[in-house]
Amino acid sequence: MTDSRDLILGRIRSALVGVDRAEHPANEPVARDYHDSHTDTGLANLLARNLTDYRAHVHRAAEAELPGLIGRLLAARGARTLAVPPGLPTDWLPGDSGTRILHDDGTLTATELDRVDSVLTGCAVAIAETGTLVLDAGPDQGRRMLTLVPDHHICVVRTGDQIVASVPQALRRLDPERPQTWISGPSATSDIELNRVEGVHGPRTLDVVLIAEG
């Protein structure tokens, strides 16, 4: 294996004989003649519009209204079980709604999650221009598996501090060492005659709740 490593690196070095070996990439910054964002106002509305465009269901609520709204979303689907990550604020949870709540302590298996109806999480950051929610496995988001296997995902976004305009702004907020899932609408495919169909393997229904703070 070491042989192939040396072989490939050797091939690269001989392919690059025309490049001055004293030249260091850090000394040649690339021209970045593009915007840091394409908009900076009305981010919550833009996020809502772009999420809706890709067939996510967008709801708005004050934080105090969350338990009621989430209860209604679960009831509308007849959800009997709801999985939640360990660090989800408990005051988001619906009261006596008849839905059994499973707190993921890291032991739920994929097969068990396959029998769970819905999952409720927060997010790390949301990108308005692209209609994207980014999950980075933070305490209110949980393991990646949690938001993948159940067929219904409810994701809560705090509009006060979690929405950025653009991809560059989102990347600056995120830590590459954490595993991330960027979600833009529900799972979809266009593989059959380029007709978009929602829901192949990920959650087929994505409810996004934008909460205004203060």
């Binding site: 990108i127 991330q180 833009s184 609408g185 529900p186």
Partner: peptide, 19 residues
């Protein structure tokens, strides 16, 4: 032709208890 594709995953090595 989308503003963003439905899912993008990033990972760095292995993470305890996730993946």
């Amino acid at each position: 032709a989308e503003r963003m594709n439905p899912y993008t995953s990033t990972w760095t090595g292995v993470t305890d208890g996730d993946g």
